Computed example of a mutant assay.
Amino acid sequence: MLIVAGKGYVDPQHREALLTSLEASLRQTRAEPGCLDYVVAADPVEPGRVNVYERWESKEHLAAHLAAMARPAQPTPAVLGMEITQYEIAASSPFQI
C-alpha cells in the first residue's frame, strides 16, 4: 500500500476556486482501480493551505493514475508551492481509541 500526503499553498483568496476546480477530478480518481482514498481539502488553520491525502493499493495503481493525469487539465488558480511525500506501507491495522 502507498500513502501520498502533503500540503500545497495558493493565494488564500483563490483556495475555494482551486478546491472547486478539483472536485470532478477527485471524484474520477476515487473511482479508479486501486484508489482507496483521495482528498484535497482546505486546511482549518492556514488560509492559503490545502492538505493532500491519497491511499493506493500499489505502486502500479498510482503509476497508472499519474500516467492518466498527463492529459491537459482545466486551468486552476496557481499553486504557489507544494510539499508532497510518498510512503510505502508494509502493514496496517485498524486504530482504536
Score class of each variant (00 low, 15 high):
74 Q>I: 09
70 A>I: 00
25 S>R: 15
73 A>E: 11
89 I>T: 06
33 P>M: 06
22 L>T: 08
59 K>Y: 12
96 Q>M: 08
79 V>M: 07
44 P>M: 06
49 R>M: 15
41 A>P: 01
19 L>K: 03
50 V>M: 10
50 V>Y: 07
5 A>L: 02
7 K>A: 13
64 A>T: 09
83 E>C: 00
51 N>K: 10
78 A>C: 04
71 R>P: 01
74 Q>Y: 00
93 S>I: 00
28 Q>V: 14
70 A>R: 14
16 E>H: 11
11 D>A: 11
80 L>Q: 13
32 E>N: 04
57 E>N: 10
82 M>D: 00
24 A>K: 15
34 G>S: 09
4 V>R: 10
7 K>Q: 12
18 L>P: 03
92 S>G: 09
32 E>V: 04
63 A>R: 15
56 W>N: 00
46 E>G: 00
46 E>D: 12
3 I>H: 09
95 F>W: 10
62 L>P: 00
86 Q>D: 02
12 P>Q: 03
62 L>G: 01
13 Q>C: 04
23 E>D: 14
78 A>L: 12
2 L>D: 04
57 E>I: 06
79 V>G: 01
40 V>Y: 04
54 E>F: 08
73 A>M: 11
55 R>E: 13
90 A>G: 07
26 L>Q: 14
16 E>F: 05
7 K>I: 09
87 Y>L: 13
41 A>Y: 05
44 P>L: 09
29 T>H: 10
22 L>E: 04
96 Q>E: 15
53 Y>I: 08
63 A>W: 03
60 E>I: 12
36 L>Y: 02
18 L>F: 07
94 P>Q: 05
38 Y>G: 04
69 M>G: 01
65 H>D: 04
12 P>W: 05
57 E>D: 13
47 P>E: 06
71 R>F: 03
40 V>F: 04
78 A>R: 14
91 A>V: 03
4 V>H: 02
79 V>P: 00
70 A>P: 00
41 A>Q: 08
1 M>T: 13
44 P>R: 07
73 A>V: 04
1 M>V: 10
69 M>R: 15
64 A>E: 10
35 C>F: 07
51 N>Y: 08
92 S>K: 01
3 I>R: 06
40 V>Q: 03
31 A>H: 08
8 G>Q: 14
34 G>R: 03
60 E>D: 13
81 G>N: 04
68 A>L: 15
92 S>R: 01
58 S>I: 07
10 V>C: 09
5 A>T: 10
96 Q>A: 12
74 Q>T: 12
43 D>S: 13
63 A>I: 05
94 P>R: 08
15 R>F: 01
45 V>E: 14
75 P>V: 05
71 R>C: 05
15 R>K: 12
75 P>W: 04
53 Y>E: 01
12 P>E: 02
46 E>F: 00
45 V>Q: 14
94 P>S: 08
20 T>F: 11
9 Y>I: 02
76 T>V: 10
28 Q>S: 14
36 L>C: 10
68 A>Q: 15
28 Q>N: 11
27 R>A: 14
6 G>S: 02
31 A>C: 11
2 L>C: 01
30 R>E: 07
50 V>N: 01
26 L>R: 15
48 G>V: 07
34 G>I: 11
40 V>A: 06
64 A>G: 05
73 A>W: 03
47 P>G: 05
55 R>A: 12
